[in-house]
């Protein structure tokens, strides 16, 4: 997907093309062109005005994406995409300004919790991935009771490894999914970790898991 202000759409496209066919969907259109999965990429959609994701969630394409997700279509939100999906109510919680108040850009280690989702299927609990983060508004927040509920329901899928939390996210949460595991958001950027040139190909594992999930849906 591409919004005015998206900046990671091309990397997301290239990552998706490593596991299948992919194309860019424009924010102003309702037509999802029959895709099997959607990536809402990082960037600064609509300038991040008001709050990151607050305006993008009302774009024409998001109506179609919400309908797509309601039908069980897999949707992955990365960074700004995560913020958009939270603002749209497709994912629980919200992203707040980093505790440091600073933009962070560095490689982090995240751990799979073992919770299953369309993007982390096959990740054992404790499996580690090295993926970069780059954001100012990435502190995951939900009220304590909601955090308990998310953990019990298996909706927390990725955590920053001990000592790696770059933004003050509560309970080190790096990625969450919806109740059915078909919509996921994370602050780290798997699409920037798909080529040995940039130091890690761990991000590709999410795209491969997504391809396997889509493959099983199509085979069914």
């Amino acid at each position: 997907m591409r919004f005015p202000g998206s900046c990671d759409d091309v990397d997301a496209l290239l990552a998706a093309e490593m596991v299948g066919e992919a194309e860019i969907l424009w924010h102003g259109e309702h037509n999802l062109r029959g895709v099997d999965a959607i990536v809402v990429p990082g960037g600064f959609s609509y300038g991040d005005y008001l709050r990151p994701g607050a305006i993008a969630r009302f774009s024409p394409v998001m109506e179609s994406v919400m309908a797509f997700a309601r039908e069980g279509g897999p949707v992955l939100g990365i960074c700004n995409g995560f913020q958009i999906l939270c603002e749209a109510g497709m994912l629980p919680g919200a992203l707040l300004t980093n505790v440091s108040l600073q933009f962070v850009c560095r490689q982090v280690t995240v751990e799979a919790t073992g919770a299953s989702s369309a993007f982390t299927g096959g990740f054992a609990a404790g499996a580690r991935l090295s993926i970069p983060v780059k954001h100012t508004t990435g502190r995951f927040y939900a009220p304590a009771a909601e955090l308990d509920r998310l953990e019990q329901a298996g909706q927390v899928v990725l955590r920053y490894a001990p000592g790696e939390n770059p933004n003050g996210s509560l309970r080190d949460i790096a990625g969450v999914c919806n109740e059915t595991g078909t919509v996921m958001g994370l602050m780290p950027h798997p699409e920037h970790a798909v080529d040995p040139l940039t130091g890690s190909t761990d991000g590709l594992k999410l795209f491969q898991a997504l391809r396997d999930h889509v493959g099983s849906l199509l085979a069914a």
């Binding site: 008001l50 709050r51 607050a54 305006i55 009302f58 603002e87 919680g93 919200a94 707040l96 927040y141 939900a142 009220p143």
Partner: peptide, 8 residues
């Protein structure tokens, strides 16, 4: 709906 996020 827009001006505030009631969660936060």
């Amino acid at each position: 709906k827009l001006l505030a996020n009631p969660l936060i």
